[in-house]
Design a protein around this nucleic acid. Structure first.
Lengths: 110, 110
DNA sequence: TATATTAATCGTAATATTGCAATATAATAA
DNA sequence: TTATTATATTGCAATATTACGATTAATATA
């Protein structure tokens, strides 16, 4: 096995987990934080900033792009990445709705 | 390889990714949603509710327990799980802070 | 005590992820 | 055109994750 049975879950559940999976690696968290913090929009600085090999960073960027949280812009020989604001905003709604569910105090069994 | 280099990241980055990793599987999202929704606190209902084998559900519950988001209470032969409110609340702060970072509009290169 | 009932653990197969060296590709500069 | 620079892709080894059958452990009930 090793294969997640996505079919048995709702679209919403798969959507939440797909986003969360991308946040589930510290390198991708670090990349996003760097994009947020940095005034210049970045590209290959991430390699020396984070300390992983260039192909590894490239791979993480690819996954961030795949879920749409970032987008890249070619500038000469380098590529500048930034947050995809609309998709980031949508993500915020999806994740917030999930983590802000109200706990039913009447039925606490612990 | 296949081994995440946690040492090169901050505690905060590792903390965020560790929480997110747990949300990164639809079964665990479904389990949490079921605990939130259900009036009775649950246990083995999850198996038939979700449609994965009992050992698989048990394994997912274990990971949710490991990060502290749920706790279990033995009731006879069954175990009743519920949200660990304090840890859930802490998680909310950590994740909210991360996803609610302000986008620096002046430096959008895309 | 014997027998259900329920959940956890063990063992294992299949697949996914991480990380990097080597290489390829793309764009500019000389 | 030929370097140079920056990023992406490929291929692969090491490790992690997912899923489940079989088994075990713990409690309840006959």
């Amino acid at each position: 096995m090793g294969l997640t049975k996505s079919e048995i879950f709702t679209d919403q559940q798969n959507e939440i987990s797909n986003i969360a999976k991308v946040f589930g690696h510290p390198a991708r968290v670090a990349i996003l934080q760097h994009i947020f913090k940095s005034n210049t929009c970045i590209c290959g600085d991430l390699v020396e900033e984070i300390g992983l090999a260039q192909p590894t960073i490239s791979q993480h960027l690819k996954e961030l792009k795949k879920v749409g949280l970032i987008k890249g812009n070619i500038e000469g020989t380098s590529v500048c990445y930034c947050i995809d604001e609309e998709n980031w905003s949508n993500m915020k709604t999806i994740i917030s709705d999930f983590i802000n569910q109200d706990i039913n105090e009447q039925n606490n069994c612990c």
